[in-house]
Design a protein around this nucleic acid. Structure first.
Lengths: 139, 139
DNA sequence: CATGCACCTTCCCATCATGGTAAGGTCAAG
DNA sequence: CTTGACCTTACCATGATGGGAAGGTGCATG
């Protein structure tokens, strides 16, 4: 099949399929006389693997490792699990970072009246002025 | 002061300070006879603002908007709050996506024995083979 | 004064994953 | 024989950041 159909079947754009070939993530497929790439079952299967790994947030290099393990009959599930858990730890790190940002921001947003006056603790905080400690409404 | 000291005081690399100037995020500072950039209090203050916004995950374009609001005496805190809450929503979206990846992966990792045999539900799943429903150990 | 060293300047290139566009070739249907 | 959908390669862009080269500036020390 042509690259367009392979793209449709895998959900990877034709552009990215060519790119993955160029960086050696997937082997170059056969060419027809027209010089068009010609994909078979095996190629599409491999692309599907890449697609799912990508959807799980694996980087290109990690996907490269996963493909090597997939191909390797001598692999151990411990190898695969190690790689996966490293990626989970990476995701956890990112999630933590984003949550910290989110929490800081919602604290600031809560302290902001959001009215038509210019005074704004968000701007104050970004400008490097410490926020006054939150006072209770009764204070 | 020279760019190096401004970099040290703000925690933004000299490289990035020049970049921010080039894309119009910060104004070009004065130059000395030597053609060296010469930064004053005001510049460093502005860079500090950028630094803190960056640390909160705002994009360059959002920081541009925030700087405009900072400069604008006519701003309303509602404007600032709106921008901030849009960014919070963006963070929430990213966090959700990462958490979904993380959950899928930990499900797979849990199902993987992590031993010296090649069978691995992680690889199976990436290869597009449905996981068998988890059986209880008594099942 | 000369040398060296730390700093500065501009310019170009790289990352990662992806998309856009341009200029041209192929092929099937009308 | 034209039209249109598809393919080819090649180049450029994103966002935020870093690396490095080639060369100028400025200060301290020999």
């Amino acid at each position: 099949m042509q690259i367009g159909e392979a793209a449709q079947q895998t959900g990877i754009s034709a552009k990215m399929i060519r790119h993955y070939e160029q960086i050696g993530l997937i082997p170059a497929p056969d060419r027809r006389d027209s010089n068009y790439r010609d994909y078979g079952h095996h190629d599409v299967h491999r692309l599907g693997f890449v697609r799912r790994a990508r959807d799980l947030g694996f980087s290109i290099d990690e996907i490269r490792d996963l493909l090597r393990l997939w191909d390797d009959r001598q692999r151990t599930s411990a190898d695969v699990k190690r790689l996966t858990e490293a990626h989970i730890a990476e995701l956890d790190r990112k999630i933590l970072l984003l949550r910290e940002m989110r929490n800081s921001l919602s604290g600031l947003a809560d302290a902001c009246d959001g009215n038509d006056r210019p005074d704004c603790p968000i701007i104050h905080s970004l400008a490097g002025e410490a926020l006054p400690p939150a006072e209770s409404t009764r204070g």
